[in-house]
């Protein structure tokens, strides 16, 4: 009998990095299925290319940087799938591939890998693609149309669609973002498995609606159009790039809502979700700094800091 010596605790929560990432993948399945149903074969192709190139890119960059291969933690697959679901169904496959590689190699790998990236890789890649090849990213396809007629998104043509269409996803848009019931199904799964907490999705969607309404948009319409809901559930909640404390998460969600409303109202792009989240990603360390929990037995953090500094 050989006894192990290891420090306490001797039990561990069943949640592991890999299990959490798998939960996210499972939660994305309804969106993926809805995307395939609405936009057809090209959606499957994009998802496959994107996921495979993200995983391959991760393996390559970890090899080059001499790190332990961690593709088993599934984070690259999550990045790839989220990126694909964020693209227009008519995006050429090589654009998706370039985006995936940019996400895992430049945004994640070169900054130190999982946990050290200060931007959400999938979103940073989408922003990269949007600036690089704006034409491909903003050519939309009408859903359920065999001959893929280009249509205007609800953001470009707010009067063109009913609320029912907006909700069910019978609108042109990115593969994963259009079908709201699928997204909500994913959200329920993520909440049920305790993968994420409800704060960021709820506050971000609500704040977006409120700020858009204040700037003259429709409250419900602005929450249902564009990628707001998808981003609120799957991207703003990215562990690495969102604040730690609940208080911080509310500030973060409010910031995202405000920037979305500002970009939609005054910006060059009709949609602002990508840049809004990226900007708040960058602000996350500052938010974390100012929303630290008070430590037990201390008066409050500010006094303690003053003491530590002086």
């Amino acid at each position: 009998m050989k006894l192990h010596l290891s420090p306490a605790p001797h039990v561990h929560s069943p949640q592991t990095t890999r299990a959490l990432m798998l939960n996210v993948l499972v939660a994305l399945i309804p969106c993926a299925i809805a995307g395939v149903y609405l936009f057809g074969f090209s959606a499957i192709l994009l998802m496959l290319v994107s996921v495979l190139s993200a995983v391959a890119g991760e393996a390559i960059i970890q090899k080059i940087l001499g790190q332990k291969s961690r593709i088993n933690d599934m984070s690259a697959a999550v990045t790839g799938l989220i990126l694909a679901l964020n693209l227009s169904p008519r995006t050429p496959w090589w654009v998706a591939m370039a985006g995936s590689l940019f996400a895992v190699i430049v945004v994640k790998g070169l900054f130190g890998g999982l946990g050290d990236n200060f931007l959400n890789p999938a979103l940073a890649a989408r922003a990269f693609l949007l600036v690089c090849w704006p034409r491909y990213l903003t050519t939309w396809a009408a859903p359920l149309a065999a001959d893929a007629v280009a249509g205007a998104t609800p953001l470009a043509n707010p009067a063109g669609y009913t609320l029912g269409q907006l909700f069910l996803g019978n609108i042109p848009g990115s593969i994963g973002e259009v079908c709201k019931p699928a997204i909500l199904l994913g959200l329920v799964y993520l909440l049920f498995t305790k993968t994420i907490t409800w704060q960021i999705p709820v506050y971000m969607t609500a704040f977006t609606g409120v700020f858009c309404a204040l700037m003259g948009g429709g409250f419900v319409e602005s929450m249902l159009s564009g990628g707001v809901l998808f981003a609120a559930v799957f991207m703003a909640t990215d562990y690495v790039t969102c604040p730690m404390s609940t208080k911080g998460q509310i500030v973060y969600a409010a910031g995202i809502g405000l920037i979305i409303a500002l970009i939609r109202k005054f910006g060059l792009y009709p949609e602002g979700v990508t840049f809004a989240i990226l900007l708040m990603n960058v602000a996350t360390p500052i938010i974390d700094r100012f929303t630290k929990r008070r430590v037990y037995g201390y008066e409050d953090n500010k006094k303690k800091e003053a003491k530590a500094n002086g």
């Binding site: 192990h4 290891s6 561990h12 959490l20 933690d73 999982l114 946990g115 050290d116 562990y239 690495v240």
Partner: peptide, 14 residues
């Protein structure tokens, strides 16, 4: 139950 785990990188999940 006592198998040792490798430390993975922190994912800042909070």
């Amino acid at each position: 139950e006592s198998k040792d785990y490798d430390e993975d990188p922190c994912i800042r999940c909070g």
